[in-house]
Each structure stands twice: as C-alpha cells, then as structure tokens.
Amino acid sequence: MSEENRKIAFICSKGDLDMAYPALIMGWAALGNGIDVTIFFTFWGLDLITKKRVDKLEIAPVANTSFKFSLMGLPTGNLGIPNIMGILPGMTAFASWFMKKKIEEMDVPPVREYLEMLHDAGAKLYGCKMTVDMFGLKEEDFLPVVDGVVTAGDFMDMTEGAQIVFI
C-alpha cells in the first residue's frame, strides 16, 4: 500500500447531456473506492455547474451517428435518425426527454443531484477562470456545490500526482 492516496481529476469541457455523465459516474465510483476526486469545468462544461443551465442539458440527434431508432426499443437494427429529421423543431427536445427518461430508468440521478452527491462525498468542483470570464459568468451563477473558480495553473497545482481524464 502506498502512503499517498490515489487521486483522479476530470476536466469536463462538454455541456451535452450525454457528455455530462462520464465524469459524474466515474468520479462517484472513485469516491466510493476511497480515491480523491477533483473536477474542473471548462468551456461548455460550465453548463453543468451553472444554475440556469444544469437542469436543461440537451442531446441533439443531428450528426450523432450513434443515435439509432433501436435505442427506443424498436427492431430497426442499425437504422439511425436521418439528419434531415434531426433538424425538425422539437427533435432535440424529444431526444433529450427520451435520454433523461432512460437515465432515470437506470436509477441514475439528474446532474444537479449527482453533483450534490459528489460534493457531499468530498469531491472538489471548480470552474475554469478563463472561460468563466469569457462567458461573463459570476460566482452567483454557479451551484452552491462549486468550490470556486480557479485558473488552469491552479488546477495543475491542485492535481499534482493525479490521473487526469479529459472529457
């Protein structure tokens, strides 16, 4: 057994509903196994910790080659949602509603609740200073579970010796 505790850090750069979950799920698993967790939210990833956005994350079926009709339990094999259909008004909302339903069926919590669990379990959550400034966001725009807004350099200092996963 090594003296130093194992550490893992995630950089969340995407704000799509499907891209929100990898860090949350792996981070939660890490905490459950006694590993220190730090998550750095940058660029579109800031949506995950922004009060106004966190409950409205979406997934667009346009140009998503993995989005198949068979996801809905239809026996359509490899048939995807045609991009021309994906651009119809309401398709992104439908896909997002559908994905959220699937997530709920797996008993996986919504992003807001997941972040609260991670925070309560000891994960450190930070916003990226440069993109926070670029998007004109302020501290009060973020969920209370966020530990602060830090620079990329601060993040490097904080994650010395950690395994870093970029999402």
Partner: peptide, 26 residues
C-alpha cells in the same frame, strides 16, 4: 449501491462517507 443505501436509510451521503471513510462502497 451507495445511492440505494442513502435513499433506503435516509442517511446522508456526507454521513455515509464519514462513517465509512475512504471508500464506503466496498
């Protein structure tokens, strides 16, 4: 799972991690 424990017992995540430090899941 941890979430089933917190939901089923009403014990908070914070308390669960305090009672079983460094990896309550296992």
């Amino acid at each position: 799972t941890l979430r089933q424990i917190t939901k089923g017992t009403g014990i908070s995540t914070k308390e669960l991690f305090a009672l079983f430090p460094k990896g309550p899941a296992k």
